[in-house]
Simulated scan of single mutants.
Amino acid sequence: MDLLNSLAVAAAPTRLDPVELFFDADIVVQAVIVGLVLASVWVWAIIIGFTLRMGRSKSRSEAFEEEFWTHEDVDSVLDLKRRKDNPSARVAAAGIAEFRRSHKSGLKDPSAARSRVAQALEGQVAYEADTMANRLNFLATTGSVAPFVGLFGTVWGIMNSFFQIGMQQNSSLAVVAPGIAEALFATAVGLFAAIPAVIAYNRLSNKVNGYEAGLQRFADRVHAQISREMEAI
């Protein structure tokens, strides 16, 4: 008997095995864990994709703005190709297009024309910021929902453990512990998905705010330049 106990102790796992916990879990808990893992993968894909996209947009915008203020031929700078992949170019194009429409119909009310140009610039800046922040909503949703989804898996697993106690009529720790461990694993996976999502959402939201502020400063300079040209007409 002592030999059997010694073999059982020797065969017992010495550390937690997430893979074994997953395969031993109830089907509902497994479904919760799979969903949370997929959400975590998508969270990291958004983080990496957003970081790369933000870096490209900022570098393109800075290069365009430098060229815009030093180039005499505005039309050649605002060609169609650059408008498609350059936020600052699209902002400038929106303001200049509104100015030209107002100038074409005659500047009967320069103040109203300036207001329309400002609205066009601000609208384009808001559009660029919203487009950049489009996928960040998933981070916020994952950060707030994932812990509760994991908790649902935990509650289900604990309910299943109590059911096993009733079926086996045995409340020993050996009967209860495996099911509870599997259930708590769902909560751990939920936190694993939620914590990076919350941190990334806060940091990337601040980056979007800074990005929008940079575009707004450029839009203000464009509006000032257009106002000076209106006064010279």
Rank of each mutant, 00 (worst) to 15 (best):
residue 71 H to F: 08
residue 20 E to I: 02
residue 164 Q to T: 14
residue 100 R to C: 08
residue 169 Q to V: 03
residue 181 A to D: 08
residue 15 R to F: 09
residue 53 R to L: 03
residue 70 T to Q: 04
residue 93 A to P: 00
residue 70 T to S: 13
residue 157 G to I: 03
residue 114 R to G: 13
residue 130 D to V: 07
residue 32 V to S: 02
residue 17 D to F: 01
residue 203 R to I: 14
residue 41 V to T: 15
residue 68 F to L: 08
residue 200 A to D: 08
residue 15 R to M: 07
residue 41 V to G: 15
residue 137 N to Y: 00
residue 193 A to W: 05
residue 200 A to K: 06
residue 232 A to L: 06
residue 146 A to L: 01
residue 112 A to T: 12
residue 28 V to A: 12
residue 152 F to R: 10
residue 228 R to T: 09
residue 94 A to E: 03
residue 208 V to E: 05
residue 215 L to D: 00
residue 69 W to Y: 07
residue 45 A to D: 15
residue 169 Q to S: 14
residue 55 G to A: 14
residue 97 A to K: 04
residue 43 V to P: 07
residue 23 F to M: 13
residue 99 F to S: 15
residue 73 D to E: 08
residue 185 F to I: 11
residue 180 I to E: 02
residue 195 I to M: 15
residue 142 T to V: 12
residue 150 G to M: 03
residue 25 A to H: 10
residue 61 S to Y: 00
residue 64 F to Y: 04
residue 76 S to D: 12
residue 22 F to N: 06
residue 120 A to N: 05
residue 153 G to P: 02
residue 142 T to N: 06
residue 155 V to T: 06
residue 190 G to S: 07
residue 112 A to R: 07
residue 25 A to P: 02
residue 114 R to M: 15
residue 84 K to P: 03
residue 165 I to N: 05
residue 7 L to E: 11
residue 214 G to R: 02
residue 40 S to D: 00
residue 213 A to S: 14
residue 57 S to E: 05
residue 135 R to N: 08
residue 32 V to C: 15
residue 44 W to N: 10
residue 86 N to M: 08
residue 192 F to I: 12
residue 92 A to V: 12
residue 159 M to E: 13
residue 189 V to Q: 04
residue 51 T to H: 03
residue 233 I to A: 13
residue 22 F to M: 12
residue 93 A to W: 03
residue 128 E to W: 09
residue 80 L to V: 02
residue 69 W to N: 14
residue 128 E to D: 12
residue 156 W to F: 07
residue 59 S to D: 04
residue 185 F to H: 04
residue 181 A to S: 15
residue 164 Q to L: 05
residue 63 A to L: 09
residue 233 I to R: 09
residue 190 G to P: 01
residue 163 F to C: 01
residue 87 P to H: 09
residue 138 F to S: 00
residue 44 W to D: 13
residue 26 D to R: 00
